[in-house]
Design a protein around this nucleic acid. Structure first.
Lengths: 191, 191, 191, 191
DNA sequence: CATGAATGAGACTTCATTCAT
DNA sequence: CATGAATGAAGTCTCATTCAT
């Protein structure tokens, strides 16, 4: 007697999660190119062949991870707001962001690896990533404008670069004092 | 007629430079793991075997590039100063730094790739890098203290992160407005 | 309510036909080795597992197709005759043969693929095929003898080779003028 | 001291020949898809990697074999003639052809495998093959016309099919009486 | 110093077959 | 009878490294 559609679907969901979790972990630590499918399958506790039953290629696996990861991050950001941030909301926002940095250290590692090699990873992937986080940009610029920054676009560039830099330093050094830096950022941008 | 020692040495120097230049270029664009020794040798215009005559392995080549590159950068930084930076010197310093970013885009690409994967590239390499740029840190902290920043260590962390972020954004997007951002930085940190 | 034996048998018959049809199609177009069991199952509209319920292996499936196909072809040939062919019967025979060529293009594709690789497909299969079409040979030789050919065995070899060649040319090129060639053959061998 | 260009070229030539010979043998006996690169390399007495040093892929290897093989065959055909065949030349031609069949049994095996699966092997390859042997066609049709055949195009089709069929029968059965059939053909087409 | 042919381990991927349900 | 998730052996191809010349 065959499994019901639901049973099958449940199995699929679980396997996909297993694989995605394992792959993020392995890709982040070894780097995409150094990581092997064998590594991922072993970490996921399944046979190599099954991995290809769910994902067509190593690349497809990477794209899935990078894009759904970014979607998850942004999706949660969107919950909070109505397009306009107050100071209190901005504080929540920043707290949220730093929490996400800690919770998704592996994701960020992978994300920056990809961003730093646009010649290796397809421009298409890069563009899709941009499309996903683009909406956040305008909300932030609006906020900075409302706070009276004379050049909010420039201020956004600075804030963006600063954020990226903080994440990178935290990735490269686990002892980076993330909380202290967060307080400083809140102090500066909330007043 | 055998070559004189000097001739041999001259050839060695030139070959080493050829290889290093080629390797930086190839590693930066393809990523260390995707780049092949064949790529590098072809770019350098020499045979694979000769490359191994000068560098024992692909890893050794990478280490050489990353370390001598960082030395070059820092070495030039050191020229300017006596351990204490005045405002004018700091402006020179920043201008110099941004110039180096543009001139050594490939180096920075490679550098951040390495920094983001401490599990792949030996901790030893990471430590040596730190040792090289460490001296700059204290000079900068001194400067920030002299400028009256109440918490110069924190300010240094912020400045460092900001710098890293700017470089990364510039690496990922050639159209990043580096000059405008530079002016803004100078405006903030020199006044 | 359990199925009756007859219902079960009816299902079996239908499934077997579904699978055989699908497999012939897929094998002929993709070639036996390039074709996958998944291809066949998909084409047959059933699950892979069910296919193995009916046929023990991919090879068994092939053998079944090749042998039953040859049986079908020969079986129909046998209908017409009593061991001796008249000129009129020979004309029917040839017409029939060419009709079968058109109707079973896929079969012939597969048949010749198999015949050309006796090292891959078992000698046993090859022998069984021969056993099946052997009876036709003597009838044809008899016919040629009755028509006064001085060396009917040689003439049979020629006719056989010619037939094979025609089929192959038709397989390789759909625009091969099969009908015109047929008329020519009839003209020659019936007079 | 590096090898001279000539030494290198001599090595290359020899290796290419080794590989091509081994590959024809293996492909013909096992069939292209069943044959493995490991088989070929082993037969050639070299490492797998070296094979890829000379041929970019298994497909490229096949194409090389099929096309250069056909070129060799046709090239020799061309030696004999000035575009017009006399009866004596035709006899030479046929004798030559049958000799080539025996000498290149493996080639023909492979050739027909390819021709029978136009869906598997690229249409491009098929077309190139046609381009190579096309010139022979018109010469033959001219000959048949000069011999007074009322419909030389049709006669060519018959002759072509007959030839293909003979080769196939010879391939499938080593005991096929090739010489006797040859005599018969000469008898018919030379008179 | 210099070349590039040669090796072989190991990467990604495919697929016949099995088996729990 | 029926499904499709799961396995693992085997295939194609890549590439750092070695070595004869």
């Amino acid at each position: 007697m065959p499994r019901t559609k639901q049973q099958v679907e449940a199995i699929r969901q679980q396997r996909v999660m297993q694989i995605l979790d394992a792959a993020l972990d392995v890709f982040a630590h070894k780097g995409f190119h150094s990581a092997t499918i064998t590594d991922v399958a072993k970490k996921a506790g399944i046979a190599k062949g099954l991995l290809y039953h769910y994902f067509g290629s190593k690349d497809e696996l990477l794209y899935h991870i990078v894009l759904t990861g970014m979607n998850n991050l942004v999706e949660k950001f969107d919950e909070n707001h109505d397009g306009v941030l107050t100071g209190a909301e901005m504080e929540l926002f920043i707290n949220d962001m730093f929490k996400k940095i800690v919770d998704n250290r592996n994701y960020w590692k992978l994300y920056f690896s990809v961003m730093l090699q646009p010649d290796v990873f397809s421009k298409e992937l890069m563009q899709k990533l941009k499309d996903i986080y683009e909406p956040m940009v305008s909300v932030l610029i609006q906020y900075l404008k409302s706070k009276g920054y004379p050049n909010p676009e420039m201020e956004y560039l600075i804030l963006h670069a600063l954020s990226d830099g903080i994440v990178i330093n935290y990735i490269a050094d686990e002892n980076f004092p993330l909380d202290a830096v967060k307080d400083e950022i809140i102090h500066r941008y909330i007043k």
